[in-house]
């Protein structure tokens, strides 16, 4: 079951209400109408079919839609978070065809046929992914906003090490990549946590990896 349905009002709906009252003040319709007369380009839509968390999705999207906005606004998978929207914070990290990426810095239409895994696809409240369980056990968050991105990233980091992808701190490039705390810290540097839960995040990942933090 989609966990967001458990609530009468989700945080998202409350945010939406706030957004409606804000747009009523800004009168964006008028601005848009004026702009069109000045020969501003009109929006273009395109079709894209992809698989998200094992489910086929077919969408007709404005070409400008990022994968992040497609997930959140069109598929209503709001677990993936928009932090900076510029690839600097990692809150939007999802796994596409087995690789973690910043979903804010890629267009949805570029992912025809792709297999996307978001935090909702990793586990459910009833059946947590081991990484989710470890984050809870080690208190790997405070406000929780960066957590979905941290967890998707952490899951992919362990796969990257298993796939022998080296990192900036790998001592010997010709040896097989290894899991250790220094490696985990470096590889997680694309996920910022402004609450500063880094040491607990580190412990959670180390536990899943089976190494000492």
């Amino acid at each position: 079951m989609d966990p967001s349905n458990d609530w009468k009002f989700t945080r998202r709906e409350v945010l939406k209400m706030g957004a409606v009252s804000a747009t009523a003040l800004a009168v964006p319709g008028l601005v848009a109408a004026t702009a069109a007369k000045d020969g501003i380009r009109s929006p273009v839509t395109a079709k894209v079919a992809l698989e998200v968390n094992g489910r086929a999705q077919e969408l007709d999207l404005d070409t400008r839609t990022t994968l992040l906005d497609a997930l959140r606004e069109h598929m209503h998978l709001t677990g993936t978070k928009k932090g900076c929207d510029h690839g600097q914070c990692g809150a939007c990290t999802v796994i596409v065809d087995g690789r973690r990426i910043n979903s804010c810095l890629t267009l949805a239409v570029m992912h025809e046929g792709a297999k996307v895994t978001t935090i909702e696809g990793l586990g459910t409240p009833a059946r947590l992914h081991p990484m989710q369980a470890a984050f809870i056990k080690h208190d790997g968050y405070q406000c929780g906003y960066c957590t979905p991105g941290q967890i998707c990233s952490a899951v992919a980091v362990l796969d990257e090490i298993r796939d022998d992808i080296p990192s900036h701190v790998t001592g010997d490039l010709t040896a097989k990549a290894r899991i250790n705390p220094i490696e985990l810290r470096e590889r997680m540097s694309g996920n910022i946590c402004r609450c500063g839960a880094y040491s607990n995040i580190q412990e959670a990942i180390a536990e899943v990896a089976g190494v000492k933090a």
């Binding site: 973690r100 540097s189 694309g190």
Partner: peptide, 21 residues
């Protein structure tokens, strides 16, 4: 093995997520 300088430079840049793209 043969161009470790290039590996090192790439790995010094950006983040894991960005290097994947």
């Amino acid at each position: 093995r043969d161009y470790p300088l290039l590996s090192r430079a790439l790995l010094a840049g950006a983040s894991g997520q960005l290097r994947n793209k």
